[in-house]
Design a protein around this nucleic acid. Sequence first.
DNA 1: CAAAAAAAGTTTGAGCTTGAAATATAATTT
DNA 2: AAATTATATTTCAAGCTCAAACTTTTTTTG
Lengths: 157, 157
Amino acid sequence: MDGSVDGAADMAAKQRLRMWLRMLKSTRRVESALRDRLRRDFSSTLPRFDVLAALDRFEDGLKMSALSGVLRVSNGNVTGIVDRLAEEGLVVRVQVPGDRRASLVRLTQKGKEVFAKQALAHETWINELLEDFTPEEARMFSDRFDAVTHKDEEDPA
Amino acid sequence: MDGSVDGAADMAAKQRLRMWLRMLKSTRRVESALRDRLRRDFSSTLPRFDVLAALDRFEDGLKMSALSGVLRVSNGNVTGIVDRLAEEGLVVRVQVPGDRRASLVRLTQKGKEVFAKQALAHETWINELLEDFTPEEARMFSDRFDAVTHKDEEDPA
DNA sequence: CAAAAAAAGTTTGAGCTTGAAATATAATTT
DNA sequence: AAATTATATTTCAAGCTCAAACTTTTTTTG
């Protein structure tokens, strides 16, 4: 517990800090590039894309709370984004039969079509932006991050 | 250029996409944890911390444009954050002698002291949050991310 | 030198984000 | 049945973020 003495643990902390800073920088760079392209090609945003992607993955729709759980953002946050997507006719709120509190958010047909195009472009962009990583490397990184990340997963049952 | 035929390139793209999604999830998890702790222990935020960290690294101060360059955020963004930090007495805007447009932002003594405490805590938090990565692994990840990231670096000369 | 172009910052408007408080409904207890 | 507790979502205020427009100052150029 004495930082000035325990050199090994101290070095470990420094390495992890360095890793975090690089990781953050890389992530921001990619996010920034994605944001630009989404705006340029689809007049859309990253949060919108994230919501569409989540809804595309769960065809039966997601409750608002499940949606914010999957996306790991706050409850109130999703409300606004879904509001705007609904205005544009990309998603709909469907009443849940036995529960008048909840509603199920679903992609509309238009929403599915719009997202399909965006998803295709998105995959291409990521492939370009991460081209310096070999497939083997990418797989290895995925697995390692996954191990760390899977500690408190959110399952929208 | 035919996705349905070129299986190898397609697999590579899928691996990179998978890597990106994991990476994003991990980054968000760590950021969220840092946000909580900064708020709890210092009544502060991540953007504020980032600005203080940048200013701590450049003791002679940074111009607003250099600051936004280092942090890779928009110009106007920094204005508001610096405004608030200045109100709290953590930073000051200093006039640049030969240029009445520019100002140099610097940490105050109080700013330095506050940041020192936060930086110490920050390093500890990161070390905990990334404890599953060995020091060797952390170093390897840093280097690989670095290679990708160092393409268009911003140097606040 | 005067006009044009470039640079440094701020302001603005819209959207995203959070945590907390408010609202409404449902399920459980008393 | 009434009161309590839990769940689902929205609303709110404050702050973050971006791109674009704008102001002021400096530099370049005809």
